[in-house]
Nucleic acid binder design. Structure first.
Length: 766
DNA sequence: AAGTACTGTCATTGC
DNA sequence: AGGCAATGACAGTAC
């Protein structure tokens, strides 16, 4: 039997912790100070009279030290210490610690009522595999806490043999074999529950009847499929009783005493319960005042919906088969047998857990049941560990899929055995398949390092190889301008190469002075050139370095340093811009290289330039090409030109313009490619970042799920029937009803509701 | 000698 | 309609 007071104390605190962790502010002080003085007394007054020994819960295997089952003070002491440490550790949580409280109140047909208020007094830590994610704090805190417990035990001399099967935090987290607990638990109850065990052996047959009986006492919302305790005033089988009534019965059933199972101060508790909430259901009895109090201006519903939406993500990827595996026990499993309930035990009634009334969040609680349908109703169930293994793999740690399966206690007394069974299915596995994880890890690495210049370039290279585009840094936007600069400088060489073939003999460069280019008489280009040199009278030194492509007659960049540049990339340079190019200082020219340079510049003459010179065109190609149409025509009109000359001039103009157009076109093409490369890089970075964020979110989600799962386990594991025996997870499941209450319902019923829940979304899609 | 890159040129298209 | 930019295609050249 359980101590109401203890459970209230822990439960309220735990629930407050839970709410605070999910972002809800609960002002417990309100209840402690004004509204519910008795309750406050209960909570704050850790009198040993209010504590009880919980043989089935939590405390006997701390660091190998057992606690004597009768050590009431120690029990209370540990409880207080644990809760205190949890509260103090709240600020160190990186991931909200989910705490769920539930009260179980049921009444047997004979009128004896057993009430229990199991609470999750543990702050369930993530598995070791998660500790690295949440940071060292968790591990430290946990170790500190538990070590403190051990030390406390030693100091107090409370070294008791590990007799009881009480659930400890370690048990939950580390998955101590359930046999440990089950054994002790059964040792204690063996004698007492012989008859019950007989009933347990009939578990299979009972399950059906029990389910029916339960169904009869449950009102199932035809629309939502949610079930809630039937409110049958005065009904003998009524499940939910007023708290007062329950307490009264408890008082009568469980005398207050040293070993009393219910040492709670009944009157205090009764007073703590608002009288107006007495009637039938427990809906308004215990938690309701707390949760519906005016001190909760927050949007509880929204909070829960947020939480549940996260959980729903898991539920969407329910792996029902896993649920079966999780809770199907090997035949003859003593534990499962022990869990079984006699067909006619009061627990067969719809057991309404303490109503965790959370406003309108009820619909969200339905999430806890969907998977139930996949669970075998038969009792022979093996309880597999729900606590995720230490694996750091997301797939493995994201274990449970649906909440029912997720929360389903692996073992009745809430212990989780890491080694006991397969890992829960990862509902998020689909989102993070191996390929994706690989990608994420790669990109994570790349991106995290990407902000390091060196590693960023490495990352880019990786991306480059993928895209097939060379992302060589020289092609980066910044380098683009550089290439532009070099290309512009290379124009002369480019055109020289094309013209070199026709100017074999030129030892002197041919730069035409517009006004002086007249009087050509030679037949060959070579001759023309030679003659031109003399005829035009250009300045050799100047022309050597100022030979310009006809395309840019006005440019005359005359940049000696461009000699070694291979190509002309002055695509986009406006003639005026090129025109402004600085001429090299004459002094910079080395006379020794004059000849060489002259030859070089001569070679740079384009074919059209050579042709123009040969045809004695009186103006430069630059003018031919770049003058506006009107001016160009005006220019032509000034001279009397032959048809051949006019044709050549028009061809020169056409080709020149086309040449520049081609250059611009190629430049645009290159720019487009480079921009695309840049876009690809940016998108890849964004993708990597988003993937990394996704991983982080999934980690957080996984941790929250683990917390909730552990809480479910703990809550369920703490539930006891009137005989103090745990409920079989294979036959019962916790479900959050539509009205926010938490119900302990048979699996069969949960299955039915789960099916309805599954149909609904489908219908909506239609 | 073959492959590649760059460039010029032509033809075409569309504005 | 003419001029012109843009562009694909081709060829020449250099490496």
């Amino acid at each position: 039997m359980l101590s109401l007071k203890k459970y209230l104390t822990e439960g309220l605190l735990q629930f407050t912790i839970l709410l605070s962790l999910i972002g809800v502010r609960v002002d417990v002080d309100t209840y402690l100070t004004s509204q519910l003085p008795p309750l406050r007394e209960i909570i704050l007054g850790p009198s040993s009279a209010y504590t009880q020994t919980q043989f089935h819960n939590l405390r006997n295997t701390l660091d190998g030290y057992g606690i004597h089952p009768k050590s009431i003070d120690l029990d209370n002491y540990f409880t207080a210490r644990r809760l205190l440490s949890q509260v103090r550790a709240l600020d160190r949580f990186q991931v909200p610690t989910t705490e769920v409280n539930a009260w179980l109140v049921h009444r047997d047909p004979e009128g004896s009522v057993s009430g229990s208020q199991p609470s999750s007094g543990l702050t369930l830590e993530s598995s070791s595999g998660l500790q690295d994610v949440t940071g060292p704090d968790n591990g430290v805190r946990e170790s500190e806490t538990e070590q403190g417990f051990s030390e406390d035990l030693e100091d107090l001399g409370a070294v008791a043999p590990p007799v009881s099967g009480d659930l400890t935090k370690e048990d939950i987290d580390l998955g101590a074999g359930r046999e440990i607990f089950d054994y002790s638990h059964r040792q204690k109850e063996q004698d007492v529950d012989k008859d019950v065990r007989d009933g347990a052996e009939q578990e299979d047959t009972w399950s059906g009847e029990g389910a029916e009986a339960l169904a009869r006492n449950l009102l199932v919302d035809g629309e939502t499929g949610e079930s809630f305790p039937a409110q049958v005033p005065g009904g003998e089988d009524q499940t939910a009783l007023s708290l007062e009534e329950c307490l009264r019965l408890l008082e009568a059933t469980c005398p207050f005493g040293e070993n009393a199972e219910f040492p709670a101060d009944i009157s205090s508790i009764t007073e703590a319960v608002p009288s107006e909430s007495e009637p039938p259901g427990l809906q308004n009895n215990l938690l309701s005042p707390l949760l519906t109090g005016t001190e909760s201006p927050f949007d509880l519903e929204q909070q829960w919906q947020d939480l549940m939406s996260i959980m729903e993500m898991q539920a969407m990827e329910v792996n029902t088969s896993t649920s079966e595996i999780l809770y199907s026990a090997p035949p003859g499993d003593p534990l499962s047998t022990n869990y079984s309930l006699a067909p006619n035990t009061p627990i067969n009634q719809n057991v309404s857990l303490h109503q965790a009334s959370l406003g309108g969040c009820s619909q969200d609680f339905s999430l806890f049941s969907p998977e139930a349908e996949s669970l075998p109703v038969a009792g022979s169930s093996t309880l597999l560990p729900l606590v995720p293994s230490n694996s750091t793999s997301l797939n493995s740690t994201f274990g449970s899929t649906n909440l029912a399966g997720l929360f389903f206690p692996p073992q009745l007394n809430g212990t989780a055995n890491d080694t006991a069974g397969p890992e829960l299915p990862d509902p998020l596995g689909g989102l993070l398949d191996e390929a994706m994880l690989d990608e994420i890890s790669l990109m994570d690495l790349a991106i995290e390092e990407g902000f390091n210049p060196v590693q960023a370039s490495q990352l880019e290279e990786e991306f480059d190889s993928d895209s097939g585009l060379s992302l060589d840094s020289s092609h980066s936007p910044s380098s683009l301008s550089g290439s532009e600069g070099s290309s512009s400088s290379s124009s002369s060489s480019s055109s020289s190469s094309s013209s070199s073939s026709s100017s074999a003999s030129s030892s002197a460069s041919s730069s035409f002075s517009e006004e002086g280019a007249v009087g050509y008489s030679s037949d060959s280009e070579t001759l023309d050139l030679e003659e031109a040199e003399g005829a035009v009278g250009y300045q050799p030194e100047y022309s050597k370095f100022c030979r310009m492509s006809y395309q840019d007659p006005s440019q005359l960049s005359c940049l000696p340093y461009l000699e070694h540049v291979g190509h002309n990339h002055t695509y986009n340079m406006a003639p005026s811009a090129l025109d402004s190019a600085d001429l090299p200082p004459p002094g910079a020219l080395k006379k020794g290289s004059k000849e060489k340079q002259a030859d070089f510049l001569d070679k740079q003459m384009s074919r059209d330039e050579h042709r123009a010179r040969a045809m004695k065109i009186p103006f430069t190609n630059d003018k031919i090409i770049n003058l506006p149409v009107e001016e160009f025509n005006e220019l032509l009109s000034k001279y009397q030109l032959s048809e051949a000359q006019l044709s050549l001039i028009r061809d020169i103009r056409r080709r020149g313009k086309n040449k520049m157009a081609a250059q611009n076109c190629r430049k645009r093409k290159l720019d487009t490619i480079l921009n695309l490369e840049r876009d690809v890089e940016d998108l890849q970075r964004d993708k990597a970042r988003l993937l990394r964020e996704k991983v982080e979110f999934l980690r957080s989600l996984r941790q929250m799920k683990q917390k909730v799962q552990s809480l479910y386990q703990e809550v369920f594991g703490r539930l006891r029937d009137e005989n103090g025996r745990p409920y079989s997870p294979s036959q019962y499941a916790l479900q959050y009803a539509g009205d926010g209450s938490v119900l302990l319902i048979p699996r069969t019923l949960a299955d039915q509701q789960a099916r309805r829940q599954e149909r609904k979304p489908k219908d909506r899609r239609k």
